[in-house]
Design a binder for these strands. Sequence first.
DNA 1: GCGCCATTGGACCGATTGGTCTATTGATTG
DNA 2: CAATCAATAGACCAATCGGTCCAATGGCGC
Lengths: 183, 183
Amino acid sequence: MSDPTSRDKLIRTASNLFRQKGYSGVGLSELLKEAGLPKGSLYYHFPNGKQELAEAATRWAGAWLERLLDTTFAQAESFDEGALMVCDAIASEVTSQPHVPACPVLSILQAAPLEPRLQITAQEVYGSWTKCIEKHAKRLGHPRPNDAAFSLHCKLQGAWIIAFAQQSNAPFAQLARTLDQKL
Amino acid sequence: MSDPTSRDKLIRTASNLFRQKGYSGVGLSELLKEAGLPKGSLYYHFPNGKQELAEAATRWAGAWLERLLDTTFAQAESFDEGALMVCDAIASEVTSQPHVPACPVLSILQAAPLEPRLQITAQEVYGSWTKCIEKHAKRLGHPRPNDAAFSLHCKLQGAWIIAFAQQSNAPFAQLARTLDQKL
DNA sequence: GCGCCATTGGACCGATTGGTCTATTGATTG
DNA sequence: CAATCAATAGACCAATCGGTCCAATGGCGC
């Protein structure tokens, strides 16, 4: 059939770069040079070009984070404990890289006015995360699963953005502390 | 001396556009056309071009939001009440415009790897907000002003991003609800 | 009315943008 | 071996990018 490593390489590289510089901040030439692939490969695997690649990269990274949320929460015995574990999990994932990457959705968010499909993608990926957290909130017997999931999602997003701005995982550490104090 | 309306017009227009499409998503020609000014004016008022304009626009909008935080919290009689009022205040400001704008700092955040000055700007503006909230937390007798300020800042940032993605103020309404329930 | 200078207007530049198109490669078939 | 076709390689394109530069403008002091 086809070589999965080439398409995969494009998605991974796109995800990395977009999460650092944003959709509009990354040029195709830069992306392809980083991936070590020619332009022909991009438009073979993604006929709609940059937008289609960005969507695929965001969904790919989005699914990865959803798995992280799901498996982490699965080990928790209470919602509060799960929230804390998720906070630590994201913090360590984010800091394991030389450059602290932004949330995958953030990369395409500001391109939404230009590319309507990306706005839909962003909403769907956000929705999948909230739903995943809500599922575990329900399972762990939280009285208001939906509100709890939304609240945690908000806090994580906020901490992630501040961490990205500071290029440090300190905000995640502080978020963990405030979660502990129920602030 | 000089006409303040021209420089001002550039800053306002830049702030609006950057908060919709991000720093890299806005071209100079588009910006100048929107402002109704020629290129000469931009480089007269901002010799360092786009980057300097973006920094000025972010600081300008940052100071505006700080005033909003300050005056809103000043009317509160408890930290929790202040947090709720601030949430509502931002929500109504954001929804009063045809396009829900992102947080001013977000516009330049993804350009930080390219323009180091903008990263410093982002950190300073974020810091000014947290400090402002912390000041009021202290005044209102909160036991942990710093953690409380950070936590509220996180929640607001998170809700703002989700509101931007959905182009709706519903996330602010839900945040207000979860604040009420101390989630 | 004249000269000065802050400001504007916009032509122009090389570099880069996202995208198209065709020639070529190379592994897999018959 | 020949034919096929998925996949790569990269030349090429018009459009736009951010930035430079200088001539024209216009209000104000003399």
